[in-house]
Amino acid sequence: MSNIEQMRTADLVAALKAAAEPTRLRILLLLAGGELNVKDLTLILGQSQPRISRHLKLLCEAGLIERFRDGSWVYFHISDRQAGGRLALRLVADVDPSEASVRRDRERAEALKRERESVAQSFFEEHAADWDRIRTLHIAEKDVEAAMRRALGDRSFEFFVDLGTGTGRTLELFADRFERGLGLDVNQTMLTFARANLKSKGCTKAQVRHGDIYSLSLADGQADAVVMHQVLHFLSDPALAIREAARVLAPGGRLLIVDFAPHGLEFLRTREAHERLGFPHDQVAGWLQDAGLALRAVEDLAPKAGSRDDMLTVTIWLAERPATQMPITKISLPKEEAREGAR
């Protein structure tokens, strides 16, 4: 018996009633394509914020969607780890995608997504030459890079992929570990800089090219290792990017994610085009599980005591496409030291 069939009759009826209202069905269709906040939905659907908030509240109460907070923003999504979420996905799968209102909502959502991500791209273009310097404003990059190398271990990789390669620094860092390296980035200015950087460092086994992190031009199961270094917080749909990274991993292949722990520095949204203010362990773990990957290790790199107030903690997640069963480990600094560093 499926989890949906195991839902209580009252819960199932409530969920179906909630989904039957036209605007709420449109909301479910949009959330099936990725996480959105109230402001996004008001712009796409052309309805007032109180009205959209009311619809979202009813959908949450019916168990069809979930909400999570990211700084001062609240996002909504459909989680297929819950029976209500799986029911929502089954319902929207039966909706004709060519219907005029459905097509119009999808086009508006895509336009909004492109507009938001163009802000990040403009920032990249403006700061391409000093992007590595900007990264060091948050936590010592040498410490992060050392932890990245420890996480991936001493093994060598036949095909190594760096998503959102930026300046190509990650390819340079692991040049001694792979036979063939590929860096993908959507920004041509960054790619130009990365090519020049890798050439000057003698990284002849690595190349970079244009690529969409949501739709990689790579075959399934092709990569032995994929790295996403300080990429997720710029994305509108981090979960989709993780699923796409998982798709190209070979059995036993490893995915290394490096990003910020949750923080409250709201100015990073405007000053540095951050979409998300860090990620809690369980959120990324859920995305990895949904993508069919096994979480192998988590490591927090907290700033040292006495650091500036705007220094951020960096988290490293190591996941693997299962080939063997391994225990999950969790590594972090002592609580007292991490607490002092956060002051």
Rank of each mutant, 00 (worst) to 15 (best):
T165M: 08
G166P: 11
G168S: 13
R169Q: 09
R169T: 06
T170Q: 09
T170C: 14
L171D: 00
L171A: 00
L171G: 00
L171F: 00
L173V: 11
L173M: 10
F174V: 00
A175F: 10
A175H: 14
D176S: 11
D176V: 03
D176F: 05
D176L: 02
D176N: 08
R177Q: 15
R177W: 13
F178A: 08
E179F: 09
R180S: 01
R180H: 09
L182Q: 07
G183S: 06
G183C: 06
G183M: 01
V186N: 15
V186S: 15
V186Q: 15
N187G: 13
N187T: 15
N187Q: 12
N187A: 14
Q188A: 14
T189L: 05
T189A: 09
T189V: 11
M190H: 05
L191I: 14
L191R: 14
L191V: 14
T192E: 10
F193N: 08
F193Y: 12
A194G: 10
R195V: 03
R195L: 06
A196N: 03
N197S: 09
N197R: 13
L198A: 07
K199H: 05
K201E: 10
G202F: 09
C203P: 08
C203S: 12
T204R: 14
T204I: 09
K205C: 05
Q207T: 02
V208G: 00
V208K: 02
V208R: 03
V208W: 01
V208C: 01
R209D: 13
H210P: 02
H210K: 10
H210Y: 12
G211M: 03
D212A: 04
D212M: 08
I213Q: 02
I213A: 02
Y214E: 09
Y214N: 07
S215F: 07
S215P: 00
L216P: 05
S217C: 14
S217I: 14
S217R: 15
L218S: 04
L218T: 02
L218R: 07
A219N: 04
A219W: 06
A219M: 07
A219V: 06
A219D: 13
D220W: 10
G221S: 10
G221V: 00
Q222W: 09
Q222P: 01
A223S: 02
A223F: 01
A225I: 04
A225Q: 05
V226A: 02
V227M: 10
V227I: 15
V227N: 08
M228R: 02
M228P: 01
H229K: 00
Q230S: 11
Q230T: 07
V231I: 03
L232S: 12
L232Y: 13
H233C: 04
F234M: 05
F234G: 00
F234N: 02
